[in-house]
Design a protein around this nucleic acid. Structure first.
Lengths: 333, 333
DNA sequence: CTGTTAGCGCTTTCAT
DNA sequence: ATGAAAGCGCTAACAG
């Protein structure tokens, strides 16, 4: 399956132009004779034809591919993002290439360069640091970039992020209204703007409701991973010697790790603990606890990303757009 | 950032060959003069250089890309698979392109063709049906393919799968030893060989332990998705009017859906229910129940896939290899 | 030590 | 109605 267009031309004895006209259904338009059409179509029916996209890309200086750089696929938010974006890109004639940076700036630089060298027509990037975001802009040159999920406040760039502040403001208020103010926060990667905004939402919820933050209200852990959550929970537990009324987690992996600690320590997850977390997952159903989760609107995020990219692809000088997508608070129990 | 090699040659006044020799650090070997080296290196330092991989690929008829076709990224097993495989391919000089088929044969055909037209050097495929597996072999022609996770028993192909039978045999025995034989199975996509083997393991565990299967022991649902699990649980519950001692689920999404039904119906997950499932997830920690899960050895699977692919890439006539990777039973509580 | 050249398969423009 | 040819940027082989 899959002769090249040139091979078909050689085999049938017609020129490349004629073959192309026939296979692109422009035969009528250019009045190619019936005989010729039939001969070519028969050959194609028997042997198949497959346009070599590499050669096409070289000639047109356009690959019809787009790159997506995310921290990791095992994070549910990013995997849904990748899946939806792939589908949407495909619907618009583009093949998405997804790569993981592991949140390491070096790796992000490497994979981004790689994607550009491979000739992607544009890039979606979840930047791991301000420096990397700037470097990407430099490397991509005149290729369109849309920054996703995080924006290190660089002027003139297109960005699509969730409203992290509003999400945690709403979540924290909901919990504060249910409970006293005995509420702690375990948070990873606090230098990320998205996390900073979440923290601010948590703090402002207290202010708005005229509640005071508990002493040592935040446990900071280095990253957004399960083992960080485990250590954070351990630290909090060691300090308090007991469980508070409520704990809020800056992300799902942190929550996973923290609950693993509790399970190890208590044998079960203490069900009276009120739990808040950024990001949602079906498996929160598994908990007996009252849980509040901030579900990001992945569909809208992806649609915005894609529409920005398509305008940028049409005209690189399109004015940059900055979307902030509202998440949704989900309550269980 | 990123002049082409030709541009550098023009700008510095040297020939393409000389420039290549210098940037590839073969200057010494070919005794390029110091002066020339410095001139070229200075220019590159200032303007950067970026090899156009598209042109390179066209010339060499090799793109250094590999394709991975999976049902969906939102399934945890497949996302870890993709993430690990991407890393391993990268370590070996290949860029992985992951696409989702949604378990639809039509879409699988479309994306596979697309990958081949884009010139991937080889393909990893989780086939959705026997017909598609055969079609992929036909389309790929002389490109290497490794089939993953499922094998519809086609001769002469390289495959890497988990030992589904052993996994469920072990899991079912563990549960049967703990409980009476009041144990049901909710299972989706029963026409997949992997699922068939799991069912057989379930049945044979009863045989081996001389227990009899309960009446109507299996609830079959069409697919491997959460809403299928929801419907399956509903059906079982309607039939029994109560909960059995134990339920085994053919996959995590099915379990998710089923527990969502229980949560809706009972308000909490009844903690006396013993739960068994294929695939593992940290979030099973969240359950108060006694759970048994079969954790696939993703790392070994990926390593096997990659090593087969690399030999096939070296020599397409390498004898096909068939790996069956042992999973691990995980017990909680 | 350095330069030249053919050609990968395609698109596009211009000729018949 | 059909064909010819240039050229995208690179590699590899050969030529000085």
């Amino acid at each position: 399956m899959g002769k090249t267009i040139t091979e078909v031309a050689k085999a049938t004895g017609f020129s490349i132009t004629t073959v192309k006209l026939v296979v692109n259904n422009k035969a009528k338009q250019y009045r190619i004779s019936e005989k010729t059409q039939i001969k070519i179509k028969d050959y194609v029916k028997e042997h198949g034809i497959m346009i070599n996209q590499v050669a096409r890309s070289l000639k047109l200086n356009k690959t019809n591919t787009l790159g997506l750089v995310i921290p990791r696929l095992t994070n549910r938010f990013f995997s849904s993002l990748a899946q939806l974006l792939e589908q949407l890109c495909c619907d618009n004639g583009y093949q998405l290439i997804t790569v993981c940076s592991g949140d390491s700036p070096e790796r992000e630089e490497e994979v981004s360069k790689n994607l550009i060298a491979r000739g992607v027509d544009g890039l979606f990037i979840v930047p791991s640091s301000k420096e990397q975001q700037l470097l990407s802009i430099k490397y991509a040159r005149n290729k369109p970039i849309v920054f996703l999920d995080r924006n290190f406040e660089i002027e003139g760039q297109s960005t699509v992020i969730s409203d992290n502040y509003a999400g945690f403001l709403q979540l924290s208020k909901a919990i504060l209204k249910k409970s006293t103010s005995d509420i702690y926060l375990i948070s990873g990667d606090n230098n990320l703007p998205s996390i900073k905004h979440r923290l601010q939402g948590f703090v402002d919820a207290h202010k708005d409701l005229k509640k005071t933050l508990v002493h040592n209200w935040i446990i900071s852990v280095p990253h957004n991973q399960a083992n960080d959550g485990f250590e954070g929970m351990k630290a909090l537990h060691k300090e308090l010697k007991q469980l508070p009324e409520a704990i809020v987690f800056s992300s799902l992996p942190i929550l996973e790790g923290a609950l693993h600690y509790l399970k190890l320590h208590y044998g079960v997850i203490p069900s009276q603990l009120i739990i808040g977390t950024f990001d949602d997952h079906n498996m929160l159903d598994f908990l007996p606890n009252s849980t509040y989760s901030v579900k990001q609107d992945t569909k809208t995020i992806v649609e915005n990303c894609c529409s920005i990219m398509l305008s940028l692809l049409k005209n690189i000088h399109t004015k940059p757009a900055n979307y902030v997508v509202k998440p949704k608070l989900i309550h269980r129990n």
